[in-house]
Design a protein around this nucleic acid. Structure first.
Lengths: 289, 289
DNA sequence: TCAAAAGTGTTGGACCTACACCCATGT
DNA sequence: ACATGGGTGTAGGTCCAACACTTTTGA
């Protein structure tokens, strides 16, 4: 835009202090896939999806756990603010990041009106992070009501998300209503009960849904795995996210072009050694022609 | 949450005026599919995707066109604010609505720091709306650079979006950089030149991408069509959004369970009458089990 | 020897692509 | 008559679910 004199004058006179503004936070749902060691020397470790939550030391929601986040900083972009926040609060760098959704309900925060721009972060780091804990994620969805008519349908799903870290177990109940009348479809996600701060269980649910959906048509899962992995590890990772079992032979064929075989093999495992693979970074070139 | 005395006291003392806050707008990319009448009595009208843009009567960006939007109102949710804005400014109700993305670059708005929570709106209304114009959308993407190495690849795409309404032609150039190194993939969308206000051409691009992607696995397209339509109309709608031609016989089979046949037929058309269909509102029940 | 995982082969069916072909209408 | 769109049929190929089967290791 070429700035005219009129625009210049306008900008000199402009003051935004006349307007009431909301507070805005960026919030990160940080996920990883961890190996749960098993007692049996033959058995492979089980893969478990975990979310990192910070402990809140001050009100509001003192002593509750919450997603990692901060009020935004007017000198940085949203992503820069988030990167700095995650670096400063939990010392995490080098992760996959994707914007999820912006939450703007009126009573989200007891202090004042606060919007939350939420992100999903994926990491393959095994260590503990600062100022919080990793929580196992257990999610169960069950259909509670379905009504079908010639005009459309309505489905209600009860969603239970249990977060646990050995000491603490956090129970969360959500209800998802899907109303489809004529063409319009409305989805409404409501918190029935939550043991997390704010509406952060919603952010976690959004992240899990996004991850599950993107699994099918992207290579997003590799952000949760170490650089070198076996195909069974990859499969277990998919199974844990999807919540279903997959057939081994078919899985190998389907993921064949997402990975590059390495000339390395596992050993000391009580079964046939398995070949190690790495992500094929050139996989999705076809999508971009 | 049960509110403890400590929390209560904290909230009484809390004042958010100590913190600098951003301004926040909600912005709507309103799309429709219009019939372009043809001269030939046999020929079907061509389908054309259009976006509704308001004319800005005041600075900043005076006399530019922009997406429909408003600064948010602290007494309403984001969606309520948007609904009211669209009702008041352009008198549109009863549309499909979906949150797109929240833009937060530092220099988006010359006045002050402004975040934009953007939405895509779809309507099947034919009439003109108030305070703005419908613009035809012409989009062209071409790959400008590709580099491939064993470490990943980098693709650059030049995107041209031309918006025209008979009188005005608005040219917009974007560059999309996709960098994939190792696992990480970064997308960066940059405005090379735009004849729209703010970064609103980005919002339009996001909306077009979202619409195109959702076409494959949802029934979103029906929001752009009248209640009753022919299968060729439906096919033309898909073709216009995707920018490709589809095979007729196959398209009919693929969309068979998205629609319900009616006992009505077109006439006066200079060719065999075609059966009218309506959207099958119970189509995607299988997705929700 | 054996339990566990690694890895390959095969078969039937579902679906998709491409094309050929006929139908019905208004001018 | 004919141009145009409406609509059906089908052959060939691809892909995928399901299952059976062999291989290899450490204890």
């Amino acid at each position: 835009m070429q700035i005219s004199n009129e625009e210049k004058k306008f900008l000199e006179l402009y003051s935004d202090s006349n307007y009431k503004k909301p507070s805005v936070t960026v919030d990160a749902v940080i996920l990883r896939m961890i190996d749960k060691e098993s007692d049996n020397y033959r058995k492979l470790p089980e893969k478990k999806l975990q979310v990192f939550l910070t402990h809140r030391n001050y009100p509001p929601f003192k002593d509750y756990y919450a997603a990692v986040g901060t009020f935004i900083d007017l000198n940085n972009t949203l992503e820069e603010t988030l990167d700095l926040c995650v670096l400063n609060k939990v010392s995490l760098t080098n992760f996959y990041k994707e914007q999820l959704f912006t939450f703007g309900d009126k009573q989200r925060d007891p202090r004042t009106r606060v919007l939350s721009v939420s992100y999903m972060l994926l990491t393959n780091r095994n260590e503990n992070l600062e100022n919080g804990k990793w929580f196992d994620i257990e999610i169960e969805e069950k259909k509670s009501t379905t009504e079908v008519s010639s005009e459309g349908y309505q489905v209600e799903k009860d969603i239970t998300i249990i977060l646990s870290n050995g000491e603490k177990v956090l129970n969360n109940q959500l209800k998802l209503k899907i109303k489809s009348s004529g063409i319009k479809m409305e989805k409404e996600l409501e918190i029935l009960s939550s043991e997390l701060a704010f509406d952060h269980i919603k952010l976690i649910y959004y992240a899990l849904e996004r991850l599950k959906n993107k699994l099918e048509y992207t290579d997003i899962a590799f952000n949760l795995l170490p650089d070198k992995f076996t195909l069974t590890e990859l499969k277990n990772c998919y199974e844990e996210i999807l919540g279903t079992k997959l057939l081994d032979a078919n899985f190998r064929r389907k993921t064949a072009d997402l990975v590059c075989p390495l000339n390395e093999y596992t050993s000391d495992k009580g079964h046939r050694p398995s070949q190690l693979f790495k992500h094929n970074p050139n996989w999705d070139r076809k999508i971009n022609y």
